[in-house]
Design a protein around this nucleic acid. Structure first.
Lengths: 121, 121
DNA sequence: CCATCATTTCTGTGATTATTGAAATATGGA
DNA sequence: TCCATATTTCAATAATCACAGAAATGATGG
């Protein structure tokens, strides 16, 4: 993942409403959710939501598909994978230099909606 | 890690110069680097750098200490851990719903200072 | 104290971003 | 075709951010 894209993704998520939208979409999974439903859930004016969805989409974090009259948005997990991968790599530093302790990705903060904290491999 | 802080951290990193500063500091490890040296390395005016360092510091991503006349900045790895933890948790979604594949944290991108642009996205 | 160095804070300016109502576009049904 | 619905695009405004020179602050050595 190259720097320009990383910045785009970070900027897209660095906004209260957009982070909320993204989190909601992650919760919904691949099925996604229509713009209207998201707007209702987050109590955002349609035009505002559209603006934010466009940013998330431009950053590659969400996908869009049409289902009859509505546009369904869904989180693109691979983009988040790439972002987390980049941050992890840059957090861990360069092993050839005096690098800090490598990120252990601490047993997961608070999951989107339920408790769940399993240590990954 | 609460949302407000996550947004602050994301916003702090979502800027070309700041991301560069942070990456440089990660490279330097706990020893850190003085403001002047960073400014020289990244060719930034002192006042601009100071502005960016303040943001990173406010977001809790870097620490500041004085060493005689100079101020040494260092990356705070625990903050990045928390951020990555939050993103991972939110990326993985809620297992009780139709959740997408959980982030495997793809075998780490490219380390801070090596050649880039290998096959992966 | 004074001179000097390192860095920050102040200040003004230009650029980007967020927000929304209103108008425009696309879709499906009668 | 005409209408209703879902969503976007447009336009205008307010808010925030980035930049960099100049002035101020804090530290050190003489």
């Amino acid at each position: 993942m190259e720097t320009k894209q990383v910045i785009a993704a970070l900027a897209a998520l660095a906004q209260e409403n957009r982070l909320a939208v993204y989190r909601l979409l992650v919760e919904r999974g691949p099925a996604g959710e229509s713009a209207g439903t998201i707007a209702a859930a987050l109590e955002l004016p349609a035009s505002s939501l559209s603006f934010h969805l466009a940013q998330l989409r431009h950053a590659g974090l969400v996908t869009q598909r049409r289902q009859s009259r509505q546009l369904i948005y869904a989180a693109d997990i691979t983009a988040m994978n790439a972002l987390v991968g980049y941050l992890t790599a840059n957090c861990c530093g360069n092993p050839t230099t005096a690098a800090p302790v490598c990120c252990p990705v601490p047993a997961v903060a608070e999951p989107v909606a339920t408790k769940r904290a399993r240590g990954r491999s």
